[in-house]
């Protein structure tokens, strides 16, 4: 696991708030937070990055998936204060220099969404799946994408999109 700097992390006794520094999509942020703030709420409520969705808020749907130091996690089940010093990438950070990430383009090419609500989580999860390198076959992709639920049932096209991006990577 990537080593991060280890500031003291002791709460401010008077207000109970905690100082957190973290980098989101390449931009460094310094915030003072209620320790109850989830990483997802930090992104949505404090940084106005509303791409990551609050579907179930219990780690069961995957709509809040982001990359935390390069690894996919459900941002609803970690506290922002625990991620002091972390590097976070959300769906808003996947495109570079005005160009869509190859997986974003593949989702468009394959019509891999209907309502779009799960799509930010599917994209972050798929980007990480390709980087992990464990999935080769369609069965393996389906299994390793099973943490992202799509109630519209766009799974067939999501699979095709990931296969296209995997061939390009």
């Amino acid at each position: 696991m990537q080593q991060r700097n280890q500031p003291a992390g002791r709460a401010d006794g008077a207000s109970g708030t905690v100082s957190v520094n973290l980098t989101v999509n390449g931009t460094r942020h310094s915030l003072t937070l209620d320790p109850r703030t989830s990483l997802l709420d930090l992104l949505r409520e404090h940084l106005d990055l509303t791409g990551s969705k609050k579907g179930c808020d219990h780690g069961q749907c995957g709509a809040c998936t982001v990359l935390l130091d390069g690894r996919r996690v459900v941002s609803c089940l970690t506290l922002a204060v625990m991620q002091d010093g972390a590097n976070v990438t959300t769906v808003e950070g996947l495109a570079k220099d005005g160009h869509l990430h190859p997986l974003q383009q593949a989702f468009i090419d394959h019509d891999a969404f209907q309502c779009g609500y799960c799509t930010p989580g599917q994209l972050c999860s798929g980007v990480a799946l390709i980087a992990e390198g464990h999935a080769k076959t369609a069965d393996e992709i389906r299994e390793l994408m099973s943490g992202n639920i799509c109630r519209c049932g766009a799974y067939t096209n999501i699979l095709a999109a990931i296969q296209q991006a995997m061939r390009q990577s």
Binding site: G59, G62, T65, L68, R71, R72, V73, V74, L77, T78, S125, A128, L129, E132, E143, L144, S146, G147, N148
Partner: peptide, 11 residues
């Protein structure tokens, strides 16, 4: 690998 999802196993 039979348990949870890759996101949860990462955490």
């Amino acid at each position: 690998r039979a348990g949870a999802s890759q996101q949860l196993r990462n955490m």
